[in-house]
Design a protein around this nucleic acid. Structure first.
Length: 303
DNA sequence: AACTTACACAACCGCACATGA
DNA sequence: TTCATGTGCGGTTGTGTAAGT
């Protein structure tokens, strides 16, 4: 269904960029600014497709690119952001000045995911490296989870998530958000690409239940923080009283309940949260929401 | 020294979405 | 409304190099 790739057009260079090519691209951007990548070919004669130019600029030539190793602090931030956002590398990169999505993605696959794999290998048999990178197994598991019947409680409006399902995958955020959203109608997020927003890098059953549980905690911390207020979600979350939000593990089930919220409110909130979150509207510093504060907050209340 | 393996990272590919004609 | 095009994103591959045998 996708468009025919234009980069394969005859006469276009491929592979590593040469210094003269870099120079031409930098000169063009200096004069015309970013964007209109396809015009570069026409106007400069550079034998690279616009897509390739954009990538080269974004990942390598941009003047604000930070070079050098990822620091411990940055790694910690990446891990936390990945826990919250999944494989939304561009969003994660947006919170790390000077770092690119490609760089973070590479770093994740070559360092963090590997560490996780190592720590897990004590408990689990080895899993094929490519499967870890692609998350294909968990992608299937996630879609299975989405199709599972979700029970719901009626007292304190909860969503009961079978812990067996949680243990089969650790796509916590998509799972939780879609699960909450599906509770009343079973109609949400069905058309979402399975590859989007899924935490595939840290899959491999990395203490999956614990990770999911932590995410839920994070979720409610977000819910209790200023985030919803700043997102204009006061009405929905005002009923989600801090002291009565619970996550309960009971036999085969993990029960999530928000006292005072009905299923529709939870669903609406979940949709708004995800929409705002993934479109980055609520995590822009200039709009008043201090994401670092949120992370610090989560940090300070962890464990 | 020669060869193999593992690693790091740049670049490519396919897809989805946005936009304008 | 439909279609073509541009852009952005995440997954994957290719390649140079360091480390190990």
């Amino acid at each position: 269904m996708g468009r025919k790739p234009r980069c394969s057009a005859d006469g276009m260079n491929k592979g590593a960029w040469t210094p003269p090519e870099d120079e031409m691209l930098v000169d063009y951007v200096k004069i015309h600014g970013e964007g209109k990548w396809s015009n570069i070919v026409k106007e400069t004669g550079l034998k690279r497709c616009g897509k390739s130019c954009r990538l080269r600029w974004m990942n390598y030539l941009r003047p604000d690119i930070k070079r050098g190793n990822i620091s411990d602090d940055e790694e910690d931030l990446i891990i936390r952001l990945h826990k919250l956002l999944g494989n939304r590398w561009s969003l994660i990169a947006g919170r790390l000045p000077g770092r690119t999505d490609n760089e973070i993605k590479n770093y994740w696959h070559t360092n963090i995911a590997k560490k996780a794999q190592r720590s897990q290998s004590r408990k689990q048999p080895r899993v094929d490296r490519k499967q870890i990178a692609s998350g294909s197994e968990n992608g299937a598991a996630a879609s299975n989870v989405k199709n599972q019947t979700i029970e719901s409680q009626n007292c304190t409006t909860g969503v009961v998530v079978p812990t067996t399902a949680l243990q089969e995958n650790n796509m916590a955020q998509d799972h939780l958000v879609s699960t909450l959203a599906m509770a009343p109608s079973n109609t949400h997020h069905e058309n979402e690409s399975s590859s989007k927003g899924l935490a595939s890098g840290d899959n491999d059953n990395l203490s999956s239940f614990l990770m999911d549980f932590h995410y839920m905690e994070d979720f409610f911390k977000i819910l209790d923080s200023d985030f919803p207020k700043l997102s204009g979600l006061n009405d929905i979350t005002s009923t989600a009283n801090h002291s009565t939000n619970t996550i309960q593990v009971d036999g085969d089930h993990c029960s999530v309940s928000i006292n005072g919220c009905n299923p529709r409110e939870i669903a609406e909130f979940s949709e708004l949260l995800e929409a705002d979150w993934t479109s980055n509207k609520c995590v822009q510093a200039e709009q008043g929401f201090d994401f670092m504060s949120l992370l610090s907050f989560l940090d300070s209340t962890d464990e």
